[in-house]
Design a protein around this nucleic acid. Structure first.
Lengths: 205, 205
DNA sequence: CCTCGATATGACAACCCTGTCACATTTAGT
DNA sequence: ACTAAATGTGACAGGGTTGTCATATCGAGG
């Protein structure tokens, strides 16, 4: 919750400050990030910073809400899913969206990575609220079990966990290599294994 | 490479210092770890610390080599594998060893976790050399492909990557919950999916 | 008992960081 | 043009960190 003073600022100055925050929090964890660096990059005085934000946490929350806003604007029309889609199709669609996002705003992705790396009280609390999409996928898996697509003996939460940990690794990979086609092939191979297994038919006993 | 002065110390004093290092590096990343905390816990003076170690890096390297020594002693006899074992059997065996290790030395595991969280130049270099066991598993997978156990169209490196990212998550989980039986069941379910897939037979087209 | 090399010590310099506050400057309204 | 409120500023206090170094203490051999 930045102060009213901050909201009254020129669009351009606000952007200056926002960009400085992005730079700092993309290259350092929350704990490591330095207000000194932010004010230097944003070309404002120490006093001003504290006139805009209560403290570093306040500043970080501002950054996150701005990012969420931008993300919502960007993806507001990318939602349509086909009724015949399986959970795997939706998973791939989600992955594509994430890739698009990383390409557009690599720094935002980095901020997320740094966030996972921090384990201050403050950041741990923030991350707690982040588990909703796991439930969503578990629901999709249950749906596909009812449809006869996924084996009934599969535990939805465990399959979800697999999909997500793979997703995380794949995105990290993409971020460092920027090889979209390679990454997609890689991911499809993984999904193929998760769908049909890695052993030969004779060994499916 | 601690100094000769350090090596000449009483066993007990050396252990005192070692333990203080373990405590500090298990609860902080390398970058966050504070020499001040270590000397306080070890009950030595600032000057002594620098008489024993060149700097924090030196101290950390000492810690790691001691840990590796202990690990080698502990696992020197746990190697025997059966000729009929598949890569999955060896994977489970490796997992069990890791669990044993965590139970014996939880702090060492924490040091590893903190290590992954740090991305200082120094730590990144250290982690680079850590990828040998990935090759080993890829080799096992190739062997099992020749034996007709694993499908020939599987890319060994990708399957390896899946096994390792799952391993990492599972160990983390065990560390926090200490539910060995639950964790084993969980892991077997995941391996079942990787072996035979998650979809019903009709969908294996 | 004395001396000399090995070892222990903590004060110190130099560099980070945050949050505050008295003061300077700008802006808006009369 | 003048005043009052809003905004900008950087010095400062108080806290952290690391690595050094002059000095003190210890211990073994002469």
């Amino acid at each position: 919750m930045p102060t009213s003073t901050f909201h009254n600022l020129d669009e351009s100055k606000r952007k200056q400050i926002f960009d400085a925050c992005v730079d700092e929090f993309a290259s350092h964890t929350f704990s490591e990030a330095s207000i000194n660096q932010i004010i230097k990059a944003a070309n404002i005085s120490r006093g001003s910073f504290y006139q805009y934000f209560a403290d570093k946490e306040d500043c970080y929350m501002y950054l996150l809400t701005e990012m969420v806003k931008e993300k919502m604007v960007m993806f507001k029309d990318v939602v349509a899913t086909n009724d015949n889609d399986t959970v795997f199709d939706e998973y791939e669609a989600m992955f594509d969206k994430a890739i698009l996002w990383i390409e557009k705003k690599p720094q935002y992705y980095q901020i997320g990575v740094k966030m996972d790396m921090d384990n201050s009280e403050f950041i741990r609390k923030l991350l707690k609220g982040n588990l909703a999409s796991l439930d969503y996928f578990a629901t999709l898996i249950r749906r596909d079990q009812q449809r006869g697509i996924i084996r009934m003996d599969i535990v939805p939460e465990i399959l979800t966990e697999m999909l997500f940990s793979i997703n995380q690794k794949a995105l990290m990979n993409f971020f460092y290599n920027r090889d979209f086609e390679g990454m997609k092939k890689h991911l499809r191979h993984i999904l193929e294994i998760i769908r049909k297994g890695s052993t030969t038919e004779e060994n499916h006993v």
